[in-house]
């Protein structure tokens, strides 16, 4: 009787330790431009309006990254992550562990920080917090997305003298992206690739014309004549992301 009790306890321990079947997911963002890998300055890309552009900065803060099950319950991958396509130490990939094995109907994340996350300034969070890698400007708080570059406008020959500066931020420009699956997470290492098509930021449902001064920059200042540029960029984000192959 004593032996049976011991066996039952041990079996229960084994089952409880293994039933979770957690694994790792490497969430990898690839920046593309008109379906090709985005090349940064000094390389150039040509946009849908024939402007030739050198991109110099592209990074964003992600938050509330989660996989969504059929019953709408979620497996959270991370509260916050940071992706920088230019600086190699933040290569656009994030490794998440303890992800339950299973089939999910969608990947969901937000570009930017929710108001609670945005409220904590860098002096109030740990040194290893991904927010430490992002820019923080007092009045704006965290920069959600930073895109910078230079353009030689179509039908001009003056060189790359149209400067492009797009900084989105503030609570009202927080946007949640849902990418439908199915997404299968197996035991072992998983790579989940997400494409970010930069061209669609400017040629999405709310297009922008970078030859116009007020559409060639924004710092998300709500009183600025360029504020609609920050809104359009934020609203075009859903279209720009897709699950990769």
């Amino acid at each position: 009787m004593k032996f049976i009790n011991i066996c039952v306890v041990v079996m229960l321990l084994m089952v409880s330790s293994c039933a979770k079947k957690d694994t790792t997911v490497n969430l990898k963002f690839d920046a593309t431009y008109r379906n090709a890998t985005l090349a940064f300055s000094p390389n150039t890309v040509t946009d849908d309006s024939a402007n030739v552009v050198k991109y110099e900065e592209l990074n964003f803060l992600l938050s509330n990254i989660e996989l969504v099950r059929e019953d709408n319950s979620v497996a959270k991958l991370a509260d916050v992550s940071y992706v920088d396509f230019v600086n190699t130490e933040n290569s656009g990939a994030s490794l998440f562990s303890d992800v339950p094995v299973g089939t999910y109907k969608a990947l969901r994340f937000s570009i930017g920080l929710d108001s609670a996350q945005n409220e904590q300034d860098p002096s109030e969070i740990g040194d290893s917090d991904p927010r430490q890698k992002a820019q923080y400007w007092g009045w704006m708080k965290y920069v959600f997305m930073r895109i910078e570059g230079k353009a030689q406008l179509a039908n001009t020959s003056g060189g790359f003298n149209q400067l492009l500066v797009f900084h989105t931020g503030t609570d009202v420009l927080y946007r949640t992206i849902t990418l439908n699956g199915p997404i299968v997470i197996n035991e072992g290492d998983n790579t989940l690739q997400v494409n970010f098509e930069l061209n669609k930021i400017f040629f999405g449902a709310k297009p922008l014309d970078i030859k116009l001064n007020d559409e060639s920059f924004t710092h998300s200042e709500s009183t600025s004549a360029s504020y609609h540029t920050a809104v359009n960029i934020s609203d075009n984000l859903q279209q720009a992301f897709s699950i990769g192959q």
Binding site: D121, P122, S123, Q135, Y136, W137, G138, W139, H219, E221, S224
Partner: peptide, 17 residues
């Protein structure tokens, strides 16, 4: 200094520090 008007903050700011 802190707004688009002067645009100093981009380079001369270190977060809240």
């Amino acid at each position: 200094f802190s707004s688009e008007r002067g645009d100093c903050f981009h380079c001369h700011t270190d977060g809240p520090y």
